[in-house]
Simulated scan of single mutants.
Amino acid sequence: MELSEKIRALRAETGLNRKQFAEHFQIPLRTVEEWEAGRRKPPEYIPRLIKYQILYEQQFGKQNKKEHDDTV
């Protein structure tokens, strides 16, 4: 899978549009657009870091929400 496809797939996994994805991961919007279009390539580790962040937020975001809901 090309890096551009990996970035698109990761964004699709989050359910965010490009602007939201860029803001969430603190990546310039233009950079995300260039990556997805294949005009620029991110360093090899970037998709991996984004994936780890997504997994972390899925795991701990749910726990934090549950803990918050239990205290309210």
Results as ranks from 00 to 15, higher is better:
residue 19 K to Q: 08
residue 20 Q to V: 10
residue 21 F to I: 00
residue 21 F to D: 01
residue 21 F to A: 06
residue 21 F to S: 06
residue 22 A to Q: 11
residue 22 A to I: 03
residue 22 A to M: 08
residue 22 A to E: 07
residue 22 A to V: 10
residue 23 E to M: 11
residue 23 E to G: 07
residue 24 H to G: 13
residue 24 H to T: 11
residue 24 H to K: 06
residue 24 H to W: 02
residue 24 H to C: 03
residue 25 F to K: 00
residue 25 F to P: 00
residue 25 F to I: 02
residue 25 F to Q: 10
residue 26 Q to E: 12
residue 26 Q to G: 13
residue 26 Q to H: 11
residue 27 I to M: 02
residue 27 I to N: 06
residue 28 P to I: 01
residue 28 P to A: 00
residue 29 L to Y: 14
residue 29 L to K: 06
residue 29 L to D: 10
residue 30 R to E: 14
residue 30 R to L: 13
residue 30 R to Q: 14
residue 30 R to T: 07
residue 30 R to Y: 02
residue 31 T to D: 11
residue 31 T to P: 03
residue 32 V to H: 02
residue 32 V to T: 11
residue 32 V to L: 12
residue 32 V to A: 00
residue 33 E to I: 09
residue 33 E to G: 10
residue 33 E to L: 14
residue 33 E to D: 15
residue 33 E to S: 14
residue 33 E to K: 07
residue 33 E to P: 12
residue 34 E to I: 06
residue 34 E to L: 15
residue 35 W to S: 12
residue 36 E to G: 08
residue 36 E to T: 06
residue 36 E to F: 01
residue 36 E to C: 01
residue 36 E to H: 03
residue 36 E to R: 03
residue 37 A to P: 04
residue 37 A to D: 03
residue 37 A to M: 03
residue 38 G to V: 09
residue 38 G to H: 00
residue 38 G to T: 04
residue 38 G to D: 03
residue 38 G to Y: 06
residue 38 G to R: 02
residue 38 G to E: 06
residue 39 R to W: 00
residue 39 R to I: 05
residue 40 R to H: 13
residue 41 K to D: 07
residue 41 K to Q: 14
residue 41 K to C: 14
residue 42 P to Q: 02
residue 42 P to K: 07
residue 42 P to D: 00
residue 43 P to Y: 09
residue 44 E to P: 14
residue 45 Y to I: 00
residue 45 Y to C: 08
residue 46 I to S: 06
residue 46 I to H: 10
residue 46 I to Q: 04
residue 47 P to W: 05
residue 47 P to E: 01
residue 47 P to Q: 08
residue 48 R to S: 09
residue 48 R to F: 15
residue 48 R to V: 09
residue 49 L to Q: 15
residue 49 L to P: 08
residue 49 L to S: 14
residue 50 I to T: 01
residue 50 I to R: 06
residue 50 I to D: 00
residue 51 K to Q: 11
residue 53 Q to L: 12
residue 53 Q to N: 09
residue 53 Q to K: 11
residue 54 I to S: 05
residue 54 I to Q: 13
residue 54 I to G: 05
residue 55 L to P: 11
residue 55 L to M: 11
residue 56 Y to W: 09
residue 56 Y to S: 07
residue 56 Y to M: 07
residue 56 Y to P: 12
residue 56 Y to K: 13
residue 57 E to W: 10
residue 57 E to I: 13
residue 58 Q to K: 07
residue 58 Q to L: 05
residue 59 Q to Y: 14
residue 59 Q to N: 05
residue 59 Q to E: 09
